[in-house]
């Protein structure tokens, strides 16, 4: 898989978690963070290159190497700041894909200014509801550290066209569903190009699994 380079503005709880998940999948992550305490935490985890400074300033933002970045996610806890960062970045490097974190459910209000809006509080609330009302749970919060990934097999990937019997996935990973999504995977399930599979992975092996499915 040609590695993606992703810039994250804001290395707080959300940004740091996102950096870890992206690193697990084998991407190259750069985080911009102003607060020395948060920088210290990022440093300890050693999953991303860190630029210390205010991400709304072009002189700081450009130090992530914008010309090589595939996406920029502004994940600070202030919507206005995030919007400013995304727009500054898009101004410095037109066509850059931007993702903005919002404190409110903003609907399609920012379409045209940023590419995606993520309302992280809604995801948090959903997780809380899952614990309060335990009978029905949405998938994303039931698994602890285990990630349930939907991965498409791309042309030329190491596992493309092979059955599960033929491939050997790292310990800590499990293909859950077959291509049709109606059946669980079996040893003769074939991993077809262009089809999407549900795969459960532990963070330590996510990178390897993504590499096997995505070239």
């Amino acid at each position: 898989m040609p590695q993606k380079r992703i810039a994250i503005a804001g290395g707080g709880r959300v940004g740091r978690r996102a950096a870890n998940l992206l690193d697990d999948r084998g991407h190259d992550v750069v985080v911009i963070e102003d607060d020395p305490e948060q920088v210290g935490l990022l440093e300890e985890e050693h999953v991303a290159t860190v630029i210390s400074g205010d991400a709304t300033r072009p002189s700081i933002l450009s130090q992530v190497g914008l010309d090589r970045v595939d996406s920029l996610a502004a994940l600070t806890d202030e919507t206005g700041t995030n919007l400013a960062i995304c727009m500054t970045a898009a101004h410095l490097r037109p066509n850059l894909r931007t993702v903005m974190r919002s404190e409110y459910d903003v609907g399609d209000e920012y379409d045209g200014m940023v590419d995606e809006v993520v309302f992280t509080e809604a995801a948090g609330a959903r997780a809380a509801v899952n614990l309060i009302e335990r009978d029905v749970q949405t998938l994303e919060s039931v698994t602890g550290d285990l990630d349930i990934l939907q991965i498409e097999v791309v042309e030329g990937a190491p596992v493309a066209g092979r059955t599960l019997e033929e491939v050997s996935l790292p310990r800590g990973s499990l293909v859950v569903s077959g291509a049709d999504g109606d059946h669980t995977a079996r040893s003769d399930t074939r991993l077809e190009v262009g089809e999407t599979y549900i795969v459960a992975v532990e963070p330590a092996v996510a990178n390897e699994v993504v590499n096997l499915f995505q070239t």
């Binding site: 898989m1 040609p2 590695q3 084998g26 030329g156 990937a157 190491p158 596992v159 092979r162 033929e166 491939v167 050997s168 790292p170 390897e208 590499n211 096997l212 070239t215």
Partner: peptide, 17 residues
């Protein structure tokens, strides 16, 4: 992996890892 050599060089083997 950086796409500076053919992509297959940046792949791990489907069986041996």
């Amino acid at each position: 992996r950086e796409d500076q050599l053919p992509t297959s060089v940046g792949n791990i083997h489907h069986r041996y890892g």
